[in-house]
Design a protein around this nucleic acid. Structure first.
Lengths: 113, 113
DNA sequence: TCTGGTGTCTTGCGACACAAGATAGTTTGT
DNA sequence: ACAAACTATCTTGTGTCGCAAGACACCAGA
């Protein structure tokens, strides 16, 4: 089920994390592993396509950083457009959660009207 | 985005509605239209495959009811297995929402550790 | 007659998380 | 010197699933 729930929240959560500070892909994967305590993980095969979508939409901007040692890292930062999109997504999210919770808390025997 | 969010919640919400009383497909569609106020609608092309999944999994049981007038209706009721599944799904849902909300409410500038 | 509501069902499409694998540099142990 | 294991990015193929679109069938009102 978690797999399905991620659809629709992944971009929002990613924008949120990147709005804190610029991060690179592998860092995001490990950040999710650590914070999620096993739940809310993300695989790199999932992450990179999402970052491309966000970049293509103008929500994030990449920046290559060559290390003295090691493989170059691609840091992403959120654009102002991305900030607006994030706020919109968070609004939608809260709205959706409220609607579902309302359904879940209804009396079980109610009829139409 | 709503489209994506529905994946993972649709079965739970459906089980919830059907646990109140048995309902038939078209009734569910109109119930969602009315309650959702435009949001959280479901199309019949979406609904029927979901009902088959639930039936195949043993979570709901169908019952044909022939009307004096009109097309026969296929009523679905939730099995005890379906009840358990619903409770499990609701638990997962609340858990997931809590995890996402925690992420959304973090300080924006936090670093690792 | 013809539109529109009621009712179930099927086919095909597009979106997307993920598994699996490729590529490449670094580090550590033997 | 060699082999794991870790860091880091990227691609391809697969399966799931909401939905648009349409088929079929019955009924009521204009």
């Amino acid at each position: 089920m978690e797999k399905q729930l991620k659809r629709g929240t992944l971009e929002m959560v990613l924008l949120k994390l990147l709005s804190g500070r610029e991060m690179y892909g592998y860092e995001l994967v490990t950040a999710f592993q650590r914070r999620g305590n096993g739940k809310f993980e993300i695989k790199d095969g999932t992450l990179y396509p999402v970052l491309y979508r966000l970049e293509k939409a103008g929500y994030v901007e990449p920046r290559w950083v060559t290390q003295e040692r090691g493989v170059p890292r691609k840091y992403y930062r959120v654009t102002t457009l991305g900030q607006e999109e994030m706020n919109r997504l968070v609004g939608d999210w809260r709205h959706f959660v409220a609607a579902v919770d309302a359904l879940l808390e209804e009396e079980t025997d109610e009829r139409d009207q």
